[in-house]
Design a protein around this nucleic acid. Structure first.
Lengths: 340, 340
DNA sequence: TTGAAAGCGTTACCAA
DNA sequence: TTGGTAACGCTTTCAA
């Protein structure tokens, strides 16, 4: 099979018997071309199977219409939601969104940031490795527009969109308190995980508002996977009934799920004896045997706002003002707190 | 903030006091440059904060080192696994992988296929919308190399990597049979979903091998979500005990999970009374209260093989032979069939 | 080893 | 409205 060289605009021009610039106009400013020239060029394009060369295009025009999104973890539906939200906005605005997964590896994050930089994309969305917005400064230094998702920086010259995790923790605790729970347990990782720390702070705030009517206990886990939740469950089970909590706020749904699992093997009933609420609205959570109440992250909106911010920055650099957008999570109550 | 224009190679050349071609050599053939010229150019690059322009690069060189992966559904971990597998291989081979999510929408699939085509990527990986490898022929026609994932076509001039779903169904049924189950139920969507159909065929094959010792019953669901599984559960519960299956093969894990949920509310014990096995090894499955046995899709390997095939095709078009690679799924037995 | 110059396929401008 | 032509930033000969 002989592979014909890809036809170029000049091939099209020759076949249609017009000048090169005219072909360009047919593609980019069709209204500036007479009807029959347009038709002639169009059929030449079809006949040749011509496909625009974006490399040449963006080189000549000095602009690109694609946005690069470097995200930390595709296995986490929160980030996939962001991608979807960003994609919708980008599409509405006539831009395309390309994804790169850093997979929680600094080296990859740096590589892809650099790739998009070399690619001269119109702008970059970055959901960085927690606490590692590396390479960001480099890219910023090159004048490329960047918006941070689910993370923020002290730098004032960059937009970011984050979720109010403090409020998330607060909502979770309030929910349990309103259901009449008086001995609350917060389970989560240590303070190095900022979202976890914020959620705990929110919980503490809700507890404080009760003026001592509700007690708070905290168990710090190594991570926030189901496995660690099962460990929390064992600890709870090992206590005398009177010392057990009647409500648990877990810093993540998988953690909550683990707790649910270990409690399922005992005579403790959920939510009658212990109500449980998690965070993130993972699919794993609501598809469980006991659907888990949770604090839902507005992933879709995070992505959409970030993309909107980025596009504004790209299109109106002069009037654009850098800002930090804070989105609110919301409560989704299911069986693990409400019962059937 | 005044935004300096991005420096180019000629700026670097001027600052370093060398010719343009020398700078290019420093970047691409450093061994052809004397040590001190190299150092001088390097420091000029650093001083200016120079970043290669890939558009110009690929335009001039006529080649690209990025691969585009258009995938159908980022919410499905199977495809995310493929992306990860493909990324690993691409990275080893010095290429970058960019992702685009078609989100089960034909229009988007076409758009992104076209984008990568215009971008003149080195090659394209496509995990198409089931039964809709649209736009594929167009892209292929332009001479771009494409490899199909989790789908195949009659066309002989294209590589594809698929999973042997018939074998998956067979493995699932064999597992139940070996555990002593004699009344098997297969639950899944209708035949328009090829993977589901294939799994059913595999189950039928395993049943046939028993020469009538094991019976098969089939329930066709609208889709394969947890919700539909709960419906299947109700049907089973509504039957007289003697008419109930003692083993269920579900075409997907979410479906199995739904069945598990509705059975949990009854006095039927899993797996003592009914053993259940799903398909796909979704996280939702193994994080459940009763860890679900499942047939695991080799997503990672599908992605890795596809990327390897694509890169071979890109690098050695002459000696490359198009092939269809069939990967085998494997059994992961957990509590829902084995018990504790 | 280094330098100079010819493309690569577009866009954008100016003249016709 | 159309045609011609100079960039765009790089790679790749070919000479020096």
């Amino acid at each position: 099979m002989t592979r014909k060289p890809t036809p170029s605009m000049s091939d099209v021009a020759r076949l249609a018997g017009v000048a090169l610039g005219t072909v360009s106009n047919v593609l980019n400013n069709p209204e500036k071309v007479s009807t029959d020239t347009l038709a002639r060029v169009q059929s030449a394009i079809d006949e040749l199977g011509f496909v625009r060369n974006r490399a040449a295009r963006s080189l000549a025009a000095g602009t690109s219409s694609t946005i690069g999104f470097v995200l930390v973890d595709l296995s986490n539906s929160f980030f996939v939601d962001m991608a979807r939200g960003a994609e919708e906005v980008a599409e509405e605005e006539g831009m395309s969104l390309l994804l790169a997964n850093s997979d929680v590896l600094e080296a990859k994050q740096k590589r892809y940031l650099n790739l998009f930089d070399e690619e001269r994309v119109a702008g970059i969305l970055l959901a960085p490795i927690p606490g590692h917005p590396d390479g960001l400064q480099r890219v910023r230094g090159h004048g490329r527009d960047v918006v941070l998702l689910n993370d923020s920086t002290d730098a004032k010259d960059i937009c970011s969109v984050v979720v109010n995790n403090v409020h998330g923790g607060y909502l979770a605790a309030r929910h349990l308190i309103e259901l009449g729970r008086r001995r609350i347990l917060f389970a989560g990782g240590d303070d190095s995980l900022v979202p976890v720390r914020d959620r705990r702070i929110g919980v503490e705030r809700a507890i404080a508002e009760t003026n001592g009517a509700v007690s708070l206990d905290v168990i710090v886990t190594d991570e926030v996977q189901a496995k660690h939740g099962r460990e929390v469950g064992s600890v709870v089970l090992s206590r005398a009934a009177a010392d057990r909590p009647d409500g648990i706020v877990a810093a993540a749904d998988l953690l909550a799920l683990g707790i649910l699992q270990s409690l399922a093997g005992s005579d403790i009933r959920v939510p009658e004896d212990i109500a449980i609420i998690g965070h993130d609205n993972n699919r794993a959570a609501w598809d469980g045997v006991i659907p888990l109440s949770t604090i839902s992250q507005p992933g879709h909106d995070v992505g959409a706002s970030a993309a909107a911010l980025l596009i504004e920055e790209i299109r109106q650099p002069a009037r654009h003002v850098h800002k930090k957008v804070i989105l609110e999570p919301s409560l989704i109550a299911r069986e693990s707190t409400l019962g059937r």
